[in-house]
């Protein structure tokens, strides 16, 4: 599913160069639930963004579902983001003026799905995350946990093979966090591949496997 070899990322800020990823090797198989752990600033988000095709590496190779994604154009990467990965952010990132329904519908609009199909899928997803009755509410009218569940529904809208979550419970109280993790667990059991960033071992315990990153390098799997 994911195959990274000697992946490097150098940030340039003016004349200052900073190597955030110093040759990462990472392999994730279909159906795995993996936690990515590491201290703050170790390069977790950088790695996740590259996996999610939000950013491009400066070295090494990255194959997503057997396809080399380096050298793709912006619009091709948009298609990958749309169809291959579902991204869940720490800060939810819902569109503020759109309802829960409209937020979930958005990826399907960019894909050109027909209206009846969209409606059915949105209803199905909102029911699954337990927010069908809240579909007409805007993000500001929802709790943090509810917002994150809308975001998960949105990430799943195009039924992507892999779900990426960068500290999904970072902005939530522990009870809401647990609900999110339970949701991930059931998604994983239903066959979804999940990669989740956390720095909490208790949270990492929900996953099947944990990988560690330190100063832009992977440590041996535990």
């Amino acid at each position: 599913m994911i195959d990274m070899r000697n992946l490097k990322k150098v940030y340039k800020t003016g004349s200052i160069e900073f190597e955030a990823l110093k040759g990462v090797f990472l392999k994730i198989e279909k159906g795995e639930f993996v936690s990515l752990m590491g201290p703050s600033g170790s390069g977790k988000s950088t790695l996740m963004n590259i996996i999610g095709c939000l950013d491009t590496p400066t070295g090494g190779s990255y194959y997503l579902e057997g396809r080399d994604v380096s050298g793709l154009t912006f619009d091709q990467l948009s298609e990958v983001r749309n169809q291959k990965v579902g991204f869940v952010f720490q800060s939810f990132n819902l569109l503020p003026y759109a309802t829960a329904y409209e937020n979930v519908e958005l990826p399907m609009l960019y894909n050109g799905k027909k209206a009846p199909e969209r409606r059915q899928r949105v209803d199905e997803l909102l029911t699954m995350v337990g927010l069908y009755d809240w579909r007409k509410h805007r993000p500001t009218e929802l709790s943090g946990g509810q917002q994150q569940r809308v975001a998960i529904a949105r990430a799943l809208a195009m039924d992507p093979p892999i779900l990426l979550a960068d500290e999904p419970t970072g902005n939530l109280d522990s009870k809401s966090g647990e609900e999110i993790l339970d949701l991930f667990t059931s998604l994983w059991k239903a066959g979804r591949t999940i990669l989740m960033v956390t720095h909490d071992t208790k949270i990492a315990a929900y996953s099947q496997r944990t990988v560690h990153i330190l100063d832009g390098k992977m440590e041996a799997d535990i």
């Binding site: 991204f87 960019y110 949105r154």
Partner: peptide, 16 residues
């Protein structure tokens, strides 16, 4: 800006 980022993350192309 942030909204543009979100839309791109969800699959918006440049022309969108």
């Amino acid at each position: 800006t942030r909204e543009i980022g979100v839309k791109m993350a969800l699959g918006a192309k440049r022309r969108h």
